[in-house]
Design a protein around this nucleic acid. Structure first.
Length: 637
DNA sequence: CTAGGGTTAG
């Protein structure tokens, strides 16, 4: 801590404070009225340091409550420098601090994110009450030290200080942030014992903790038991479903919230948009957007950013751009989201010019900005640009992180420069992780390089033995080069080690519901009709030159069977379903949880031509806009 | 004097 006199204000004192003090200071009896006036004027001038100098000069006799006011204001304004000065000044005064005052000081340091100072005051306090403990816990919880917050609880109980609802609200927040669910559950039990579990603050925090663990059943139970509910508890519940990408339940709770007479807040809307973004539910999202406009809710950045992302993830880059243009204030997240949207739609040049525009506005890019820009370069094959922007990070004092290196390996690898990519990995200043080798492995799969692929796959196995991605890729490399025995060996290894492949699935939104298709699953009520329709379509595209590319069937089966298997890829089934049910001319949007396969890609291109349809496919990595027989990715993805 | 809910990458 710096001594107080080094922190003295250099600013000119607020004139009203000066004049009021000088007019009154001659009258020694009116010190208390002087203090009152000082307090009042302090609220306007906020010149804490000047008040201290008045005390030093003898113009003002301090009182404990004046110090309290000064500390409180520094807390609200989060002015650490001034708060420290007041604290130091107080220590050199003749006053003995009481518990209340020291609690305020602890709280001041916590709110100013200076936890070490808070802890020091806390440790030196002769006595502590529930407020002291809770203030420090909250400090830790709000400053990304949730474990430190949790550790205080047993100490507090051990010393016989009974917790209150404030304490529990903070503890559950800390437990949720620290993934400390076992601890959270134990605290829940203690909370019930102290009769605090029905409080709305405690409840919101508690249900949020369960929701973060995807335990929505428990979250709902806590919610239902609450004595009274408010916007926050509703929002916590809706946000829980949104995080799980459970749009259906999120929407259901939203409607219930309305019926119960609560108005949606910007928290509510941003959760709902991110829920819709997860499934790419454009129609639902549009409905919520309309609801928001009608409610009079302004398009502030926090909502705008999720709304933009929602349109982008539903494949409508034009709507995303419209939201971006209408935002009154764009923060770095707005720019990043728009950059990412362009990048995922394969608009490399546009991403770069948007980024240059961002720089010309003087907006400070962050790490995520560069991930977006580099991703754009990678998807569009902009080699030189990618390397240029990686170097540019230094200009902004940003150290490239592993994610940036992954993207550059991807960039080089996609372009077929496999040796250069390997050299790049060897020369990286940080230790390559599984994702880096995974990117190289992916490139080997793309360019059918068995030897380097094997090498990369071994690295990934070592670093991340539980990921199903690498073995699948490796077996695909073998399979696509006709080395079936080796492919089968990898598959067998996977089976034995218990690594499970994520099942492929595709889905289509129609009339406010989502229809999902999983490979080899015939549970959809329309399935027979869909398959028949696809067979007919298949004949049509074969007439214009479709040749099934059996490289993409990776099972060890005979030729005929492999062609048959190809026809049941879930994106094809989803496409057939959409063609069958959607009005002519309507754009078809298909989502897939993993990358679209090469054979489906060529099939869909031809479908867009033969059926005269605009088809948008969102896969794990990017968007494909199919139209008139070609795709926006130019077959580079 | 102490409390709870929301966004961007891979």
């Amino acid at each position: 801590m710096k001594p107080f006199f080094l922190l003295r204000s250099k600013r000119t004192p607020h004139p009203s404070v000066l004049s009021s003090v000088s007019s009154l200071s001659s009258d020694s009896n009116s010190n208390s009225s002087l203090i009152l006036q000082t307090k009042h004027l302090l609220r306007k001038s906020q010149d804490h340091l000047h008040v201290l100098s008045l005390i030093d000069s003898g113009s003002l006799q301090p009182r404990l409550d004046l110090y309290s006011d000064l500390i409180k204001q520094c807390t609200n304004l989060k002015k650490l420098r001034e708060g420290m000065a007041v604290h130091q000044h107080f220590l050199s005064s003749r006053f003995n601090p009481d518990l209340f005052f020291l609690n305020s000081v602890v709280n001041m340091y916590c709110k100013c994110a200076s936890l070490e100072d808070a802890r020091k005051v806390f440790d030196e306090m002769p006595e502590r009450d529930v407020v002291t403990w809770t203030a420090l816990m909250t400090g830790y919880a709000q400053n990304e030290q949730p474990l430190d917050a949790l550790r205080l609880f047993p100490m507090m109980l051990g010393l016989g200080v009974p917790p209150n609802q404030f304490t529990f609200a903070t503890l559950f927040k800390a437990a949720g942030a620290a993934n400390g669910y076992e601890i959270g559950e134990q605290v829940h039990a203690v909370c019930v014992k102290f009769g605090c579990d029905l409080d709305v603050y405690v409840g919101s925090s508690l249900l949020d903790m369960y929701a973060r663990q995807e335990r929505m059943l428990e979250a709902c139970l806590v919610f239902d038991m609450l004595e009274s509910k408010n916007e926050v508890s509703w929002n916590a519940l809706i946000a829980g479903y949104a995080r799980k990408v459970d749009g259906e339940n999120a929407m259901m709770k939203f409607r219930e919230m309305q019926r119960s007479g609560f108005k949606a807040t910007h928290f509510t809307y941003s959760s709902l948009f991110s829920a819709c973004a997860g499934t790419g539910a454009l129609e639902q999202g549009k409905w919520v957007h309309a609801h928001m406009v009608k409610s009079g809710q302004k398009l502030i950045a926090f909502i705008g950013n999720t709304l933009l992302d929602m349109y982008a993830k539903a494949g409508s880059i034009q709507d995303a751009r419209k939201v971006f243009d209408r935002l009154d204030k764009r923060d770095v997240v707005s720019w990043n989201s728009m950059l990412k949207a362009c990048a995922h739609h394969g608009l490399g040049k546009e991403t770069i010019s948007l980024f240059e525009e961002m720089r010309s506005f003087g907006i400070q890019p962050n790490h995520i900005t560069f991930v977006c820009v580099l991703t754009a370069c990678s998807h569009a094959g902009l080699l030189a640009e990618g390397q240029h922007y990686l170097k540019m990070m230094k200009m902004y004092k940003l150290e490239p992180e592993i994610e940036h290196y992954v993207t550059v390996v991807d960039l080089l690898g996609r372009a077929g420069l496999l040796e250069q990519a390997q050299k790049f990995i060897d020369e990286m200043p940080i230790e390559p992780n599984a994702a880096v080798w995974g990117a190289l492995l992916g490139a080997c799969r793309m360019h059918k390089n068995v030897e380097l692929g094997k090498f990369a796959a071994e690295r990934v196995f070592q670093l991340d033995p539980h990921d199903s991605g690498p073995p699948v890729l490796l077996s695909n490399i073998y399979a696509s080069t006709g080395r079936w025995t080796e492919a089968a060996r990898v598959r067998k290894m996977m089976k034995e080690s218990g690594v499970k492949k994520e099942p492929a699935c595709s889905w289509v939104e129609m009339e406010n519901s989502v229809h999902m298709f999983v490979a080899n699953d015939d549970s959809h009520p329309q399935i027979r009709e869909i398959l028949k329709f696809w067979e007919e379509t298949n004949v049509k595209i074969k007439e214009v030159g479709y040749v099934p590319d059996k490289n993409h069937v990776l099972l060890f089966v005979d030729e005929e069977e492999r062609e048959a298997r190809l026809q049941y890829h879930c994106e094809k089934i989803a496409l057939a379903f959409a063609l069958l049910n959607m009005p002519p001319g309507a754009t078809i949007r298909i989502m897939k949880n993993i990358r679209v396969c090469g054979d489906c890609h060529s099939a869909i291109k031809l479908v867009s031509k033969v059926m005269e349809r605009e088809i948008i496919v969102r896969d794990k990595n990017r968007f494909h806009h199919f139209s008139k027989g070609s795709c926006s990715c130019d077959d580079y993805w």
